[in-house]
Design a protein around this nucleic acid. Structure first.
Lengths: 244, 244
DNA sequence: CGGGAACTTGATCTCGGTCAATATTGGTGG
DNA sequence: CCACCAATATTGACCGAGATCAAGTTCCCG
């Protein structure tokens, strides 16, 4: 799958990738790069593992063991209410971490693979100890967290203020940006999620998502290809509608 | 005002407060406490300043200078769309930071004082340099950020999935918790925000917020006192309704 | 007290949810 | 390669929660 082509580019334990500037976190290139000895220490903490599409990486309420750094593929972080309502809280791409948030030693959210995923698992305790000795790693962690916090703030605006079609437009821009920044730019955008997952991300129902796609298609802003792909015909207009 | 009684308890540059374990960030007590010399360095970065209720601490789009660490009072972080729609993205209490998030050297959100506020301003560049040399400060920053991220994730569930009355109930529990954890527990809960601000926080209109308060009052879960105060009559039921 | 701001309440409208077909799609086996 | 079929998405009809518009009321500060 095309998605996987980005694999390893920004993966934390990928030795080849580290010297080029994009390493533990996006801001780490502001600090001195990890040297080989310390890199080896980090590598020792967790090797890469694979998850199939749809597999769960961690579950809310489970005792927290390790967090995950994605090498390739896309994951979703979500929470479920007792009555079955579900909210996807974030999408995570190669280079991102997930499973980092905890409440009283338990995971706060749930993590699931949207595509096949390769990721490294790091024991949280060991990582924290490592970070306590390596200011640049700690700084990179803070950088990664502030990036996530910024996106989540954005998402609150989307959920709190935007209309259904605006939300879907925003979502498409988000996916598009994800591909352009982190993976491979492509004309045919793979949505990665089915309508139900998109609905749970945008706080809508599948029917409303479907109708919103319909409207955007009618406005000649996008074109749908099969169930999972979209072609953006008018990116400027899409951004405008999505209030990006 | 009652709120201000919490002042200084967890303020970063409050020398008296630091040795007791609650310092730069909530998790810093896991590390060795700041010693006096390094504390002095931090203090040199920014002295405390005052803001009146309703004053703006920073504006989205302004070039980022410093971020703020609240000593006393409550602040709100929000973003506004071109058409006037507004979303409050977070509430910040003593000990919290705000104005930390930036995009291309500009503030991403706007910060406003909900009560009179005393806060220290830290130059971001100087702070980052300081954190790069002090792993525990960097770790504390990461701790603060993950706490914020966790809350924002929660808020996404509220905005994406909860009904109006559930949202208002959740909000009340949130305020209640804020007081109990960070300020002084009190039977009469001061809302800090007017209906319009609450509405912008919950993604609702003032009328809907008002009706939700009405329902909760009718269910004998809360009692309203004037425009700004609430008495929680049935905390368990309130938490249940708010899906906390 | 008095008056303006903030909140509440009521009537109506609309967007999105719900329920129910219908249509596509994409994977499978003949 | 095609036919089939279960899964998924779309479309339509209707309904209801919350938005909008419009009065009242209450609050609170001088």
């Amino acid at each position: 799958m095309a998605l996987e082509r980005g694999g390893g580019v920004r993966g934390l334990p990928d030795a080849k990738a580290l010297p080029c500037g994009r390493c533990v976190g996006r801001d780490l290139n502001l600090c001195k790069p990890l040297d080989d000895r310390r890199l080896a220490q980090l590598l020792a903490l967790g090797g890469p593992r694979l998850w199939a599409r749809g597999e769960t990486l961690f579950r809310a309420g489970d005792p927290m063991g390790s967090f995950f750094k994605i090498r390739s593929g896309i994951a979703a972080v979500f929470r479920m209410l007792d009555d079955g309502r579900r909210q996807v809280v974030a999408l995570r791409a190669p280079g991102d971490c997930l499973g980092y948030l905890e409440e009283g030693g338990k995971y706060c959210f749930e993590g699931v693979a949207l595509t096949e995923i390769s990721a490294c698992a790091f024991d949280r305790r060991q990582f924290d100890a490592f970070a306590a000795l390596n200011p640049d790693v700690a700084a990179a962690t803070a950088g990664e967290l502030s990036r996530a916090l910024k996106l989540t703030g954005q998402a609150m605006v989307v959920l709190g203020q935007l209309k259904s079609t605006e939300r879907v437009a925003h979502f498409l821009v988000e996916i598009d940006t994800l591909y352009r920044e982190r993976l491979v730019a492509q004309t045919r955008l793979s949505l990665l999620m089915n309508r139900s997952q998109i609905a749970d991300y945008l706080g809508l129902t599948i029917e409303t998502v479907s109708r919103a796609f319909g409207k955007l298609r009618k406005y000649a802003v996008i074109e749908l290809v099969g169930n999972d792909e979209v072609i953006i015909l008018d990116r400027a207009r899409l951004r405008e509608i999505g209030k990006v």
